[in-house]
Amino acid sequence: MITIKNLHASVDGKEILRGINLEVKAGEVHAIMGPNGSGKSTLSSVLAGREDYEVTEGEVTFNGKNLLELSTEDRAREGLFLAFQYPIEIPGVSNINFLRTALNEIRHYHGQEEIPAKDFLALVKEKQKLVELDVKLTNRSVNEGFSGGEKKRNEIFQMAMLNPKLAILDETDSGLDIDALRIVAQGVNTLKSKENATILITHYQRLLDYIVPDYVHILYKGRIVKSGGKELALELEAKGYDEIKKEFEIAE
């Protein structure tokens, strides 16, 4: 699905990612954990194509294509989806209009016809249920006046509508109460299939109780310093990040 090789990236001349290697195959769920400032959000931003970041070295192959050469919109059209840590409020653009435009541009990219209005509305109705998103919210402006939990659910709703191949969930659990977390996780689990893959970026182990990863990676100072199965997250939870820090400060 996606292969990341020796990825280096900097922002304002400061190197944040210092050689990331990662391979995610279809059907897999990977969790990337790490302390604050380890580069987790930079990684998701770089993969989604945010222009503030400069890739200085390395390569990323997504479905056989050179991801780094694609524009942000083409990455999305190829099936990459980033659930934002801080979803943006866009007053004046209705959720519905936004999603229809997005869906149709993706379809257009793949040489498909626009989705008929009736089918689109049926799809909205179906996917809305998945994340228990209030019908009123879908007609409102994108994220405007949404609570933190509603914003996160809206991200997963968008993900359900666009049906990506690879979903990167950037700290989707942050700021969620336990009920919202359960709903979001249930949404993600329902959308999981043999054809798609998920990367969970998180600081806490809590999310991984609900979405069980196949692999866990620990990111520290811009590198993946340790990889393992789901038990690695529990170990991390028990020891705390300080242990990891100590271990790898010494190794460095």
Partner: peptide, 13 residues
């Protein structure tokens, strides 16, 4: 930021 958000959903520039 808003522009990036829209583009990240597949909407062209």
């Amino acid at each position: 930021d808003a522009l990036f958000y829209l583009k990240a959903r597949g909407i062209g520039e």
